[in-house]
Design a protein around this nucleic acid. Structure first.
Lengths: 237, 237
DNA sequence: CCATAGAGCTAGTCA
DNA sequence: TGACTAGGTCTATGG
């Protein structure tokens, strides 16, 4: 174990800014902890008074101001942002990320810690148990929907968006299926309704999900559509 | 500037685990950097092979495994999770967060850095320029919708969800308004349609937004509803 | 606790 | 680039 990557000791802010920028440019992730103000201006705006926070600057150009309590950041700037790290006339460390006319700036009044490290590339990792997995499961096992059901198209494009599963039942009725991996909601019914009212031929509309809210089920049935309960791969609901 | 909060130097993992747990319990945020594996099991599941990552443990019980490049975490556990920090039989540091039958575990093969600090309370901070601000703006200035428009109800409840603005025009037509702070989409139209088909009396449906996508505008007009362009407080679109 | 809807949604995909 | 949708959505709010 070593601590050579901690660059917060006994150096001027200007020098620290240079090292952080170099670290960022060379592919390292930088984490900065200290008392700072945060200013975001863009689609919305948010200003945070001086307070102790941690800020992460990623080599992708993403910048994250961590929340004190939540999972979601207090502020952020996405991948691809233009990062600058420098000092201002008061020798304060300024980290800024610009992207598409939006700006996020952290101004540090002091610095408690500053570390950098080469983060492993997790770009190809992915979660399992997605809705598309359920689509594939239905395509391979169409009887999950009902006996005699045949899938005609997956992600069928319409002017009202893409239909999850388009098929035909054993009485030759065209069927539109909206799949949800979790409990279906009013939104799910609206989505189905939107496809049903598109120019795509259909006589039956189905929401396929492990569960459905009461109000969604009422709306669904008022609209003349059906709910089909399906098993979805999950450990908890 | 000091580094006394870096507890990664020259101590055993067991001792470090104790200090981290104490820091967490006493209200500090802990950041741990090192080679680790990550296992999440719950609504979905994801396993990350050994790699260098940073993990944040917040006193609220939130745990975050940072992504290498994105803003969103690679894995996480929400506020209110039960945190354990300990070593296993191989003396590896294990951080685990349990919540509602879901689990997230980080197993550290080595540790590059471990810091903790008292994060300022940003619980009361909030972004400005929200949709509710626009609602209030319309309530105070109903002519934004059109001359003679009068607001009857805000967030009117229906069995199909809540109507943003419910009002009446100068010809006594009941009007349902769905407000969006950004470009309206197919979803916005579906939402309006859902309210229009509810039991609430209405003869006009309006989407009020700064812009609308082409397909959403077509769907809107096919359904016999209207788009009204409004100014929204923003610096960029 | 469930249900609903916004979010600087983010991120991915496909035209 | 724009549009559309899923997401372990998260998070806030109201019943």
């Amino acid at each position: 174990m070593d601590d050579y990557k901690n660059i917060s000791d006994n150096i001027e802010n200007k020098e620290m800014a240079n090292r952080m920028l170099n670290a960022n440019l060379s592919g390292d992730t930088v984490i900065l902890v200290g008392k700072c103000t945060i200013s975001y201006e863009g689609r919305s705006w948010k200003y945070l008074e001086p307070g102790v926070r941690s800020v992460i600057i990623k080599p992708s150009g993403a910048m994250v101001v961590n929340s004190s309590h939540r999972v979601k950041p207090e502020n952020w700037q996405p991948e691809g942002s233009s990062i600058t790290i420098d000092t201002n006339e008061d020798e304060e460390l300024i980290v800024e990320a610009l992207n598409s006319g939006e700006s996020l700036q952290a101004r540090f009044l002091n610095i408690i810690d500053c570390i950098h490290y080469e983060h492993s590339d997790d770009r190809n990792s992915s979660v399992e148990g997605k809705e598309s997995d359920i689509h594939n499961h239905i395509i391979k096992n169409p009887e999950i929907i009902e006996n005699g059901f045949t899938v005609l198209e997956h992600e069928k494009q319409t002017e009202a968006g893409d239909i999850d599963i388009y098929g035909v039942d054993n009485e030759s009725n065209r069927v539109i299926v909206e799949v949800k991996r979790r409990k279906a909601t009013l939104d799910s019914v609206s989505q189905l309704n939107r496809y049903m009212e598109s120019s795509v031929q259909s006589s039956r509309g189905i929401v396929a999900a492990p569960d459905i809210t009461d109000s969604a089920e009422r709306l669904l049935s008022d609209d003349g559509y059906e709910f089909i309960q399906i098993e979805t791969p999950k450990l908890v609901t």
